[in-house]
Design a protein around this nucleic acid. Structure first.
Lengths: 337, 337
DNA sequence: ACTTGGCACTCAGGGTGGGGGAGTGCCAGG
DNA sequence: CCTGGCACTCCCCCACCCTGAGTGCCAAGT
């Protein structure tokens, strides 16, 4: 269907268009790449590529521009992931190494990704449900009120205040704390709900109403409120790629946590680098953007996703390289802590 | 210097320009507002206003546009703060009431402000140093490592992991926790540093090295790292006001926590609504934007600031009204929790 | 069967050149 | 001090042309 030269032509078109942002014509193609054929030949190839839907011309007698389909083919078969040089790797490492805190890791990661790719960076907080309980803490705030703090092995801390049905004493709190930690320590968060169901039996009858309140908030925190937050950075980079009027829509989409979650979710759970191009994104308003994402986590398991978002006219190999490299190091940092 | 009518003319110019985004001429002024004089008279007034630097014409034979100085006069003497209707107040209240968490309060506030004003909203987290310790918690993470959690009376939770010089046992942790809470509970964070200095005497000698490590991290958290975070929302609203090329600079400034902090800091510590217009902002890149900010907090004390940022061509009375109303309700929520 | 040079054709973009119109400054008279 | 009148100034819009890059097609060459 498409012989080698036609593929080479497509690759050249994508590369040129990405770097110049102008429709690329047959003549400039043969000049810049050393395809040793004449422009006329290229024109014939282009006609075929256009017929197949890989490229289009914005108007008659203009050069060609890749379609989403064209980029897709490019990403799948014509380009690899651009590996990072040792120097770059070291830079990433030192940039992330200074972080002292999960929040800080995430913030640094966003900045780093945005800077490396000159695109918008998107980082999802490590998922709560896939990690395990490291500690549960209960702190009295008043006689009918406690603060529940949950610490996970990925360093995340969740807090909720709990309004109690009745007054609670220090002893009861100590008991509750002991029971919770004894039963939950080290458990996967996904399993916590079922474990908690059995807990009321373990506390003294008088305290059960209060305990029940605490337990239900705890379960809520884990299950019902799986608000895995997404942090965005480098939005200023959007102004470089001229979306003209679409910029507004893109910015709006980026402010919606829900939209971002869906966007990251669409790429599934795979650890590998995934690319979604233009109209492949279900989210309206991001139809002219592409996302390069990957899973990351401590060790093997995928705890969350991160990636970059930019115009479909994007340097995919570099973006994929950056995303992969950063994910790798973030995983490393999480595993260490 | 400026008689009443000239001031009225300036007010009218500002109002018209804000609502139409087009230079306003003498004729349309007399039409839209009922100044019962002729256009020629207005022209004379405008000439004076221009000479004094309150308005300019973009080019000969165009209408007039307010200068930063003009807006300043408008804000200081010609307009009040637009009060909110009871219905609007109720809407604010219910929107904020659902929050369950300090993070959530801040996030909702940002969204609310952005939506009410159709500008970029900026909310600073309640300052650590001005609030008081509610509880300190220490959680073992390993034999040479603990997690230090600090809970303030504004509901903020700070966490840091501490690497210890030597192994630590459960007893030691319990002791440390007791000492810390006994001495720090209820203290203003600003005072904590001095109190902590005396603490080592209170722990058993064998544990002093570990205790010292914990204490120093604690003090660091409070003092050295006064990273009062700022949350931004509604950036999409910037696309409505056409900054043409300046948009990039504005977006960049908004991503720099440091810049935002400085910006909010410039308005001082006053609780009242403050306006900084265009070139009054020291931050480069925000020379063509205005900020409307106010302090907020639980009760009287100002814990942090919040506000909106937009083009100098902004509806100041409404923005000021929104900022004031929102700050009031946020303060209320913080006081309750 | 593919490649190539030639050729006519098509348009987007940029520069030019008037009007039209909104707005101004000034002046003389109320 | 206000007002109507008047001449003047430019911005903006539109219509026009023209150039140049790029194309599709065809006939000839390999």
């Amino acid at each position: 269907m498409l012989d080698d030269r036609k593929l080479a032509v497509l690759r050249a078109i994508v590369e040129d268009y990405v770097s110049t942002n102008e429709p690329v014509g047959s003549k400039s193609l043969v000049d810049r790449h050393n395809l040793d054929v004449s422009p006329a030949t290229i024109r014939n190839d282009m006609a075929v590529l256009e017929e197949q839907g890989y490229i289009v011309q914005p108007h008659t007698s203009a050069g060609r521009v890749p379609t989403d389909l064209g980029y897709r083919l490019f990403v799948d078969r014509l380009s690899g992931v651009k590996p990072f040089s040792p120097a770059e790797r070291r830079a990433i490492e030192t940039f992330l190494a200074g972080a002292y805190d999960l929040d800080d890791v995430v913030m640094r990661t966003v900045r780093l990704l945005a800077q490396l790719t000159r695109q918008v960076a998107v980082v999802q907080y490590p998922s709560l449900t896939r990690s395990a309980v490291r500690h549960v803490e209960i702190v009295p705030l008043g006689d009918r009120r406690v603060l529940l703090v949950l610490i996970t092995d990925t360093g995340r801390v969740e807090q909720r205040t709990v309004e109690l049905p009745g007054p609670i004493g220090d002893d009861a709190i100590t008991q509750l704390r002991a029971v919770l930690n004894a039963c939950l320590d080290g458990r996967k968060l996904a399993d916590v709900a079922s474990v908690v169901a059995d807990l009321p039996e373990r506390v003294s009858p008088a305290e059960r109403p209060n305990a029940a309140a605490v337990f239900s908030v705890l379960v809520e925190t884990l299950v019902e409120r799986h608000d895995e937050r997404v942090v965005v950075g480098g939005a200023a980079n959007l102004t470089a790629a001229d979306f003209s009027r679409g910029l507004h829509e893109v910015l709006e989409a980026l402010e919606e946590q829900v939209v971002l979650m869906r966007l990251l979710g669409e790429s599934g759970d795979q650890a590998a680098v995934t690319v979604r191009i233009g109209s492949e994104n279900e989210v309206h308003g991001l139809r002219s953007t592409s996302m390069v994402t990957t899973g990351y986590g401590a060790g093997e398991q995928v705890l969350a996703r991160l990636g970059v978002l930019g115009p479909t006219r994007m340097d995919y190999p570099t973006a994929m390289g950056a995303v992969r490299a950063v994910a790798r190091y973030v995983g490393q940092i999480l595993a260490e802590s």
